[in-house]
Nucleic acid binder design. Structure first.
Lengths: 149, 149
DNA sequence: CGTGAAATTCTTAGGGA
DNA sequence: TCCCTAAGAATTTCACG
């Protein structure tokens, strides 16, 4: 991204990636082929890494979400927690963090029992202790990144 | 969502919402207009709440992300933190949580100084104390929700 | 960056299992 | 009800100025 037109395109495509090139063009003040060329450049240069549909978690059986902090039981062992946990599809995100724990996961499950079994799976797969913080209500998430000029 | 074909459509559209109806149809074993009808129904029934482009945070000047737990300074006061914080566009998500703090935010900024000023803004706007956990590395995030059946 | 034409895709109406 | 086919409209694509 280098100028304000690209920033405008990114802002629009973040909100509504299924808009037509003509619609995007109108919103940013460009013609169809100019928007297309810039979009392609933003994709192939890796500024845009992909597209997602946002689903209502309740309506797809994932009513319960939680943060799970994890810490290796044996700090002298090699630590490959992110890889060994990757196959657990309930894990939506995995970050290494500064603080007491080593990693912060964000997970989505259907029920408290699913959460219990997920936590067990995590402990077994990665040889870690866990500290779980249940989400009671989500006010907003997945807000598009706001771009400065 | 009611059956396995809808689940397959959701899985595909979660990963690649810009695929054509013909591509989606081929992947789930349906014709164009059948896929279109189901997609429309999934959208208007609120199972699909929207679409997003995923941007590379580094490349849009948001190299630093963090979790911020916040707790109201005066628990007897009415608590409307999510609303008063909503205008801070660096905040990507806001959840109410079970645990010591009241809310968990996920934020993205450009620099440590931006994080400092964001934390100050949060404290001032919502009359809260904060506890910040900086993200050192993100292994994965925004993974599509995996659907059963 | 815009124009224009060809290729592809979307949309809708109609009919069949 | 759910799906398919088919035709017209809209969009994407790409060479050229």
């Amino acid at each position: 991204m280098d100028d304000s037109v690209d920033a405008a395109i990114l802002a629009e495509v973040s909100r509504d990636p299924r808009a037509t090139l003509a619609q995007l063009g109108e919103r940013v003040g460009l013609g169809v082929s100019a928007v297309q060329a810039r979009l392609r450049r933003l994709e192939s240069s890796g500024v845009i890494t992909g597209y997602r549909a946002v689903l209502d978690p309740e309506k797809v059986g994932r009513s319960l979400s939680a943060f799970i902090e994890i810490t290796p039981l044996d700090p002298s062992q090699p630590d490959n927690a992110p890889e060994v946990l990757e196959h657990l599809s309930a894990i939506e995100a995995c970050h290494s963090i500064a603080g007491d724990a080593s990693y912060m996961l964000f997970v989505r499950v259907g029920t408290p029992r699913d959460l219990e079994s997920l936590i067990r799976d995590i402990r077994a797969a990665a040889a870690v202790s866990t500290r779980t913080t249940v989400v009671l209500q989500t006010f907003y998430e997945n807000r598009p990144i706001a771009l400065e000029a």
